[in-house]
């Protein structure tokens, strides 16, 4: 490719969990604006491989914005400057000569495994602690036996779009996962099927959230701005409301 962008990349490199890590600087040339951000990193990795330097480890899987595996703090913004996942960020959002700083998600609950790869198992454990409706296979009643008002079903769906990527935690100045927890609380709490466990769920999930070392929410809103699925801040209000009710009910 003759034309295209030339970029300076400042990338966090860390050989393992115990390594201190530091920012390394790389140059890439001839980057097409049609490339995705991760394809740009693929190009860099091919170059590194060719010159005998170990490629940069970063997570990605579906590369269509739905699995939540990709992460990356790009120039100080989780998933970069657009409201989408890193894998759906395209190089047309940058311009020739730009310097791009790429860091892993930073939170004590998300320890770095290598380079830009972090462990987000804490989010799984929050789900384990209550982010479900107990319905053993085979025990379900006929699906249409319980109607769900459409607006409640819509709200449940809108917040169930959370992909568990952790951008909310990465962006939050307090390292809180409240948006993640709130989205699940709201999703299950809006549905009639979610009522029986509603208040024990919120206490258990918030308890696990705190236990994992996430920070408390101060309602700043950077999480919602970073969320690639545009989950609104009102899920945190819902979370608080449900916890308040749980408190009243003696949970």
């Amino acid at each position: 490719m003759t034309d295209g962008m030339n970029l300076t990349l400042n990338i966090w490199r860390q050989t393992g969990p115990d390594d201190k890590g530091s920012i390394h600087s790389y140059q890439v040339e001839g980057i097409s604006s049609d490339m995705s951000f991760l394809e740009m990193l693929d190009v860099l990795n091919e170059q590194l491989n060719a010159r005998g330097e170990e490629p940069i480890a970063f997570d990605s899987d579906c590369r269509e914005g739905i699995c939540g595996m990709c992460s990356l703090m790009i120039n100080g913004e989780a998933h970069g400057p657009e409201v989408t996942t890193t894998c759906q960020l395209h190089m047309r959002s940058f311009k020739d000569g730009d310097t791009i700083t790429i860091e892993p998600w930073r939170a004590s609950a998300f320890p770095v495994i290598k380079d830009l790869v972090v462990d987000r198992g804490a989010l799984d454990r929050i789900i384990q602690s209550g982010g479900y409706i107990s319905a053993n296979t085979g025990s379900a009643p006929e699906a249409n036996s319980v109607p769900v008002p459409r607006d409640k079903a819509m709200r449940a769906f809108n917040v169930a779009t959370c992909i568990g990527c952790g951008a909310c935690v990465a962006a939050c100045p307090n390292g809180s996962a409240s948006l993640f927890v709130g989205a699940k609380i709201t999703h299950l709490g809006e549905l009639p099927q979610g009522q029986p466990e509603r208040y024990s769920r919120v206490v258990d999930m918030v308890g696990q959230h705190d236990h994992e070392g996430f920070g408390g929410c101060t309602n700043i809103g950077e999480c919602a701005a970073a969320c690639p699925k545009e989950i609104p801040l009102d899920v945190i209000s819902q979370l608080n409301k449900d916890l308040r009710t749980a408190l009243k009910q003696g949970h």
Partner: peptide, 18 residues
């Protein structure tokens, strides 16, 4: 709690949405 939740700070951090 917030201090402990993020012991290592970002090199670059924007505050979009705040």
């Amino acid at each position: 709690r917030a201090q402990k939740a993020r012991p290592i700070k970002y090199v670059v951090k924007k505050h979009t949405g705040a």
